[in-house]
Computed example of a mutant assay.
Amino acid sequence: MGRSRSRSRSSTRHRHKSKHKKHRSRSRSRDRAARRSRHRSRSRDRDRRSRKRSYSSSSSDSDLDVLAPTKVLEEKKKEDEEKQAEMERLRLERQKALEEKLIEEEVAKRVEELVAKRVAEELEKRKDEIEAEVLRRVEEAKRIMEKQMLEEMEKQRAAEVEAQKRKEEEERRKREELENIMKENNRKVEEAQRKLAEEQLKLVEEQRKMLEERQRLEDEQKQKVKKEQEVILNKKNARPRLSFSLGGK
């Protein structure tokens, strides 16, 4: 497998080198053609200037008037040739830029494919290692989760115990308050009952005294009446008795 990858990389590098060599060869050919074209254009310009100088030295003023249209045509032709050369140069530059862009895109594409292939190969080689790492992380996460759950349950139990303590304390406090209220109520009831009993006893005592006083008054009245009756009876018994005899003296 390693040999196949090395052969693939070697063949890829060889293709890249061959393509770059061809591209450089075509670029050099285009440069040489452009230089030859510019050289021919400059040679024609020099020839035309030389012919003009020789012709002007041997011709008269009348000949210049006759050759004026020819000069205009030559200048126009020269301008056309210069424009054509400039257009050719621009075309070659655009073609060169396009070829370079295509080469860059092809290189980037092949590099991307090579990187993707290398990544896939590395992932395949490290598949077991990755799976083991994933399992290790899963187990670690499970342990952490279990620990967190135990801590949460412990906190919940502690909170429940604390809540139960508070509830019991509250119930005890309420029970004590209720007992105190009941004690106070019982004390008040007992106090009220004691006062009521005392009042009832006092009332009974007063009634007894009133009855005794009434009985005493009744007894005194009876004694008085009895004494008066005795006085009356005694008076009756104290009268002299009259005796009458029918046989007389």
Score class of each variant (00 low, 15 high):
Lys209Cys: 02
Ala238Gln: 15
Gln215Cys: 10
Leu233Trp: 05
Gln215Ala: 11
Ile232Thr: 10
Arg208Asn: 01
Gln215Thr: 08
Lys236Leu: 12
Val204Lys: 11
Gln223Cys: 14
Glu220Ile: 13
Arg214Tyr: 05
Arg239His: 12
Leu242Met: 09
Phe244Pro: 04
Asp219Ile: 09
Lys222Leu: 14
Leu201Thr: 00
Lys224Gln: 11
Glu206Asn: 06
Lys209Thr: 01
Asn237Tyr: 05
Ser243Pro: 00
Lys235Arg: 07
Leu233Cys: 08
Ile232Pro: 00
Ser243Met: 06
Leu217Asp: 07
Asn234Phe: 01
Gln200Cys: 09
Lys202Pro: 01
Lys224Arg: 15
Glu220Thr: 13
Leu211Phe: 01
Lys235Trp: 07
Asp219Met: 15
Gln229Met: 15
Lys227Gly: 06
Leu217Arg: 12
Val225Asn: 12
Arg241Pro: 04
Glu218Gly: 04
Lys202Val: 04
Leu203Pro: 02
Ser245Phe: 11
Lys224Ala: 12
Glu218Trp: 05
Leu217Phe: 05
Asp219Gln: 07
Lys226Cys: 03
Glu206Ala: 02
Leu242Ser: 15
Arg214Asp: 02
Arg214Thr: 08
Phe244Glu: 07
Glu212Thr: 09
Phe244Met: 14
Asn237Phe: 08
Asp219Thr: 12
Glu206Tyr: 04
Lys236His: 04
Lys202Asp: 06
Gln215Ile: 06
Lys222Tyr: 06
Lys224Leu: 08
Glu230Pro: 00
Lys236Thr: 10
Val231Gln: 15
Asn234Ile: 01
Lys209His: 12
Ala238Pro: 03
Lys226His: 12
Glu230Phe: 14
Val204Phe: 05
Val231Pro: 00
Glu220Met: 14
Val204Asn: 08
Ile232Cys: 03
Met210Lys: 08
Val231Ile: 12
Val231Cys: 05
Glu228Phe: 04
Leu246Cys: 05
Glu213Ile: 05
Val231Asn: 11
Leu203Ile: 00
Lys224Pro: 01
Arg216Ser: 03
Asp219Gly: 14
Asp219Ser: 12
Leu201Pro: 00
Gln200Phe: 03
Lys202Gln: 08
Lys227Glu: 12
Lys209Asp: 02
Gln207Tyr: 02
Glu205Arg: 05
Lys235Cys: 10
Leu217Pro: 01
Lys209Tyr: 07
Arg216Asn: 01
Glu228Gln: 11
Asn237His: 09
Val231Ala: 14
Glu213Leu: 07
Lys236Val: 11
Arg241Ile: 09
Ser245Leu: 10
Gln207Phe: 01
Asn234His: 15
Lys236Met: 13
Gln223Met: 13
Pro240His: 11
Gln223Trp: 04
Ser245Met: 11
Gln223Val: 13
